[in-house]
Design a binder for these strands. Structure first.
Length: 292
DNA sequence: CACTTGACCTGTCCGC
DNA sequence: TGCGGACAGGTCAAGT
């Protein structure tokens, strides 16, 4: 679930709670999700929290950084002195904080703690040298340009209309698969890919390179629009997504087609949303509006 | 090389 | 009620 808007929501809070705090210890319970040495993190003070597509990068002042990818069910939950609002623990934290799905606990100064929970154990944490992030992370190295959702704070490798047109016109796969291919475009996952395509009435199975110039332009704008809407809503929390202070987003209640199988199309076209599979992924679209 | 499929995981939901 | 099986989705390795 966590796509660009969800990971950005996590980043904003991590920035708020972690910057200028020191990692005192790292408790690793499930070693498979942790690559590198925890010794490189201990004693480091958090300088900044960045995001590249769906990956979080926590930069420390000791020349090391920590890369975190929460994949689908990973959660980062903060408990500590500067958390003003004490929230009741979300039922989305399966097994409870520190329970069977807590795989790593970062012990911070002043008694703060950052918990990494992940029911399905797909997510990962990796320690890397800050100046060699791309060399040490295959994922970052291959990551494509990323849609701009905040003009005042653009990503390092922004997706421009020109770049978008180039990748779309070069690919023979379905446009939906292309949108979700992190090497081509960073940050877009299933929910926002479905919604963006519905918004511009393009059939998700349409071969990417068959899109016309106008369609490409409209889709580019729609992508930015749905991602911004996702951030505005604090992300989509349907399955496991919550932010470090325990807040849930509500984009799941405002999706355009995603998860709406058999429901009436929001365009009032009379069509009913159909669910198909594209590259093994659930895909929702309106057969009436989004004709091939 | 370009693209698709299966594996990784576990909880949840559906049908019998 | 219990049980098997399909499904959820992000990424990578393996397969076509």
């Amino acid at each position: 679930m966590p796509e660009l808007p969800e990971v950005e929501s996590i980043r904003l809070q991590l920035e708020k709670y972690l910057v200028d705090h020191v990692i005192k210890d790292v408790e690793i319970r499930y070693h498979k999700c942790f690559q590198g040495s925890k010794k490189d993190l201990i004693g480091g003070k958090v300088k900044q929290v960045r995001r590249f597509g769906k990956v979080l990068v926590i930069d420390l002042d000791n020349r090391y950084s920590m890369l975190i990818h929460v994949r689908m069910t990973g959660q980062l939950i903060y408990k500590g002195p500067n958390l003003k609002k004490v929230q009741k623990l979300s039922e989305k934290v399966k097994g409870g904080l520190g329970g069977k799905h807590t795989h790593v606990i970062f012990h911070l100064d002043y008694g703060g703690k950052l918990y990494y929970n992940d029911v399905r154990k797909f997510g990962w944490i990796k320690v890397a040298v800050s100046s060699k992030l791309k060399a040490e992370s295959k994922f970052l190295k291959k990551l494509g340009p990323e849609p701009v959702i905040d003009k005042d704070n653009p990503p390092e490798n922004p997706l421009t209309l020109e770049k978008f047109a180039t990748v779309v016109q070069a690919s023979g796969t379905s446009i939906k698969s292309l949108l979700m291919d992190q090497k081509k475009i960073a940050g877009v996952g299933n929910i926002y890919a479905n919604d963006a395509l519905w918004l511009v009435k393009i059939n998700p199975t349409k071969v990417s390179k068959k899109l016309g110039t106008e369609e490409i332009k409209k889709l580019f704008k729609a992508l930015e629009k749905v991602l911004k809407e996702g951030i505005k809503r604090g992300g989509a929390s349907e399955i496991a997504f919550i932010t470090p202070d325990g807040t849930e987003g509500n984009y799941q209640d405002f999706t355009l087609v995603y998860g709406k199988e058999r429901e009436l199309c929001l365009n009032n076209c009379g069509g009913k949303i159909k669910k198909i599979k594209i590259s093994g992924r659930g895909t929702y679209y309106c057969p009436n509006c989004q004709k091939l």
